[in-house]
Write a protein that binds this DNA or RNA. Structure first.
Lengths: 152, 152
DNA sequence: GGTGTTAGTTGCATCACGCGACTGACTCTA
DNA sequence: TAGAGTCAGTCGCGTGATGCAACTAACACC
């Protein structure tokens, strides 16, 4: 996605998109979340070019989102797994999935469901307020300048 | 981001990324969320090319994520605002923001904070289980095949 | 009549991506 | 031991999206 970077953006989102905003990157992460960990598995599943997949995986490993571990020697074969930093992105993936299912539903229904691991119930991507504990809708959330906002 | 589409992907995320996955699109939406609604405001704030911004806005309007309304006649001037469908994406933007602030913190602190509109408390992007009401962490969420999953 | 504002469009050069073939190290089968 | 298969990539070429900068159009202000 980035030929050039999002220069001059003092913004947490642009920094994030430098890492995961390129074409295919979020789909690669989705596949890893769904249990696909090997290079050829990802190529087959995504239909992405081998060149691009190679670049994306290297970038994600460099940034600490994925880790590359040898799962066999002779010949050396590698698998890609999420780090904690990568796992922290699953809500983004989950919410993109929810949004797609909501606004672009497939006739047959959603191909994947998000469930609560322990009780099996459906999961929704609500935000919560840490102070009062309320679950929030989009309209309940406001932004305000933080300490790092440059004065203009 | 998409020269070609993510063809053959039976996936809610790829459908979503067709709409919001292109370079700059999520940053445009962030800016609209933060209150920038006019073409030149967005150009100045993002540093994006006028050409690309024009394309992105048209695409988002076509997809019903933004709406384009005239805020004055003679000369006609337009502003871009979120639709409900667009507002449903704010948790994605918010979570990307949180992730950037967490893993790529600025020395001065985060430039923007998310707050609960009514009580002012900090907001975190947790998922919640609709069945039991628990707030979930990334590890508490599992995926399972849904009705729309094609058999292989 | 000249300058400024706003919302774009146009043209050119460059960069990233898609496509497909190829490499290299090793295993498995006949 | 020759040939096919597996896996994780790399290489080369053509196309399409993007960056840069100038230009247009419609109007307001002085």
């Amino acid at each position: 996605m980035l030929g050039r970077d999002y220069a001059g953006q003092v913004c947490s989102i642009s920094r994030t998109l430098e890492v995961v905003g390129e074409r295919w990157t979020l789909l690669v992460l989705r596949d890893v979340v769904l249990g696909r960990h090997r290079f050829d598995e990802l190529v087959d599943s995504l239909g992405v070019t081998r060149t691009v997949l190679s670049r994306r995986l290297s970038h994600l490993v460099d940034e600490g989102v994925l880790e590359r571990t040898a799962y066999q020697q002779r010949p050396e074969r590698y698998a890609y797994h999420l780090t904690d930093k990568g796992r922290a992105l699953t809500p983004v993936i989950a919410h993109l999935m929810w949004w797609g299912d909501t606004y672009y539903p497939e006739p047959a229904g959603p191909p994947r469901l998000l469930v609560h691991r322990s009780c099996g119930g459906p999961v929704t991507g609500r935000f919560a307020c840490e102070a009062c504990g309320d679950q929030l809708r989009a309209g309940d959330i406001a932004t305000e300048p933080g300490p790092g906002l440059p004065r203009t």
